[in-house]
Amino acid sequence: MLKNYPALIGEKLRAQILAQDPEQVFENYQGMMIGDGPINIWVRERSDDGPGGTFDIITINDKE
């Protein structure tokens, strides 16, 4: 992930991630969406880690 970070996370997505209010994260049965509109990242908390555990990246949407 770190090696390919610049190719995976563009400037717009990075700005949206940094600007995201943690209290306003969209959440449903699929996970949590960080960002807005077509530029976002979906993450899901691992159920076996308990609250505050590890999160997996499910999808990176970085193209409009």
Rank of each mutant, 00 (worst) to 15 (best):
I58P: 01
M1T: 08
D56Y: 06
D49P: 00
N40G: 06
G37H: 04
P6L: 11
R46Y: 11
G50H: 10
K3F: 13
T59E: 08
P38V: 08
L2C: 09
P38E: 10
D36W: 10
N40T: 07
G10S: 10
L13G: 03
P6W: 10
E23C: 07
W42R: 03
D62C: 04
M32P: 01
N40S: 14
G37A: 08
I57F: 09
G53E: 04
I58Q: 08
E11A: 13
G52M: 06
D36F: 13
I57M: 06
E64P: 00
D56N: 12
G50Q: 08
L2H: 13
D36Y: 14
G31N: 07
E11H: 08
G35R: 01
A15Y: 02
I41P: 01
L13K: 03
I9N: 02
R14V: 00
P22Q: 10
G35F: 01
E64I: 06
A15E: 10
K3T: 13
G31Q: 03
G37E: 03
G10L: 00
F26G: 02
I9F: 15
I34Q: 01
F26C: 04
A19D: 08
I58M: 13
F26A: 14
I58Y: 03
D48W: 13
E27W: 05
R46C: 12
M33T: 13
I17F: 03
Q16I: 00
G52S: 07
K3N: 11
M32R: 15
D21R: 09
T54M: 05
R46N: 15
R46G: 07
I9L: 11
P51H: 13
P22D: 07
G10Y: 03
Y5D: 09
P38K: 14
L13M: 06
G53Q: 06
T59Y: 07
S47C: 05
F55T: 05
N4H: 12
I17Y: 01
Q16T: 02
A7I: 05
I39P: 01
N4D: 12
R14E: 10
S47H: 12
L8G: 05
R44T: 12
Y5H: 13
P22Y: 12
L8C: 09
G52A: 09
R46I: 06
M1S: 12
P51E: 15
D49S: 15
Q30C: 06
E11T: 11
I17W: 01
V43R: 02
L18D: 05
E27A: 15
N4E: 07
G50D: 03
K63N: 09
